[in-house]
Simulated scan of single mutants.
Amino acid sequence: MRDFETIFSRTPVMAILRGFAPDRTLELARTAWDLGIICVEVPVQSPEAVEALAAVVRAAAGRDVVIGAGTVTTTDRVESARASGAEFTVAPGFDADVSRTSLALDMPYLPGVATPTEVERALSLGHMWLKAFPASLLTPAWITAMSGPFPEARFVCTGGIDSRNAQAFLDAGARAVAVGSALESPEQLPALAKLAG
């Protein structure tokens, strides 16, 4: 099991491929890999999304990349993610049952947080890597503010991140950022490659 420290030590950028058909998901995953973004999350909110996740996992065979499942809000989704070959799970919030199930299946769990109380609760249960969501509404200043009382927290900023604002979150103390629609914007790809490198 690769932990988030290992995953994000290679690149501070993750790709999120939400709501696409399997073929388009694969196309965007390859775009991400070509840019040097080795970590890809496929949210699993529907049966088609689970198919897309499984397709990306198959395409990743033989590549030194990491594929995870996002929007994992139930234990059923954890099990579906594991069956599809995901290596980690991500959620918009924090659920102790989802956390336990994911860890029991050897998949690191990245819970979403947006308040000091949520950060403290997740840390108390052993989760140092946290998804700051929605990051664009929280702002880079939130990351800096949370890093004061919670220096052990490792934030992955998700939601509204693109090549124009990603560096501001990293400069504020985030350990990683996640991009989605930016991968469909050709003019942003060179900047994303620079961030990933």
Rank of each mutant, 00 (worst) to 15 (best):
H127T: 07
I7V: 15
Q167R: 15
F94G: 06
P186N: 11
H127P: 06
P47Y: 10
E5G: 15
T6A: 15
A60C: 12
L53M: 10
A83P: 00
L137E: 12
E187W: 10
F169L: 00
S163N: 09
A114K: 02
A166G: 06
G126R: 12
I16S: 11
V72M: 10
W142Q: 01
L130Y: 02
S46T: 15
L137Y: 08
S136R: 13
L26W: 08
E41L: 10
S181T: 13
R77W: 02
R121W: 01
P116I: 03
R100L: 14
T117L: 13
E79D: 13
P151M: 07
G159N: 05
A54E: 13
A174P: 01
D23K: 15
M146E: 00
L138C: 03
A83I: 05
A153D: 03
S46Y: 02
M128E: 13
A32Q: 09
A153V: 03
E41Y: 05
R10G: 12
A59T: 07
A193H: 08
L183R: 09
A55E: 12
T158N: 02
G160H: 09
L137A: 14
L183T: 08
D171A: 14
V50L: 15
A29W: 09
L35Q: 08
V98Q: 09
V119T: 08
R154D: 00
L183A: 08
T144N: 02
E48C: 03
A96R: 15
G197W: 01
A69Q: 12
R18K: 14
F20T: 11
P92S: 12
A168F: 01
S46P: 02
S185R: 15
V179R: 06
